[in-house]
Design a protein around this nucleic acid. Sequence first.
DNA 1: GCCCAGGTATAAA
DNA 2: TTTATACATGGG
Length: 280
Amino acid sequence: MKNSKNLNIIKIPDTISIDLDQTLDCGQSFRWQKLDDYSYRGIAYSKEIKITKKDSCLLILGSSKYEYDTIWKNYFDLDLDYDKIRDTLSEIHPNMKAATEYAPGIRILRQEPWEALCSFIISQNNNIPRIKGIISRLCENFGEHTGSGFSFPDYETLSKLNEQDLSYLRAGFRSAYILDAAKKVFKREINLEEIKYMPIDKARNELMKIKGVGPKVAECTLLYGMHRLEAFPLDVWMKRAMKTLFDGYTYEIFGEYAGIAQQYIFHYSRMNPQIFSSCG
DNA sequence: GCCCAGGTATAAA
DNA sequence: TTTATACATGGG
């Protein structure tokens, strides 16, 4: 371990299965930037790192040992045994096995609750490239400069803005939703820290008190921002996937890891649009 | 120009 | 309770 923080390299052995492309660009997070040297640059909890893989080891650059222990180990969910979870899910259904084998390096990130909430409000009726653009402009304008990027703006900052202030985002009707979320979270009308530990139905209902937050955005917030692995965004698209890929069973067949299962299915189907027709 | 995007609010049946 | 439509914007 070197003295200078910026030269620090945290090396994680290859016993942990993680693929950066699969994990950082699978529609769960919209902020990680792929660099020319096959590394990713990203910011979470207001800290910036570069992360890459070399000799099947995960390297984190720009993080102190302390930040690794308190932020990144947790963020990348490195203590959870995904190999075991994939094995369990694979036994449930052949198509679940196919989905896990397609992208076995996916892990569910532990993103900040507010960032996840805000991101998935923006995601509604929107495509991934444009979601990334809007979030990028949001951070550039209202986040704090950290190294070479910007942190995600906090809800206090956004709660003091109006729709005019957000016009630069070109987020359309979603701007009003962002502001309503920021105001309610800032006033603790919505308490994200409490919601994190509520029973899933109550938690979902709490989040849905925010304008523009329906069941899909609520479940995504719970899954990606609160690490509620049982949360399952059952939208029209997923209902179709359940019908065509899983013989009409309901998502409960996936048990406590339904959310992880859903992420594998989503990625698998998005990258292979033909599977719906071939499995119908 | 067209269709669509990790949906939701609102009104109507 | 379920179903239909508008919504802002722009990627492909």
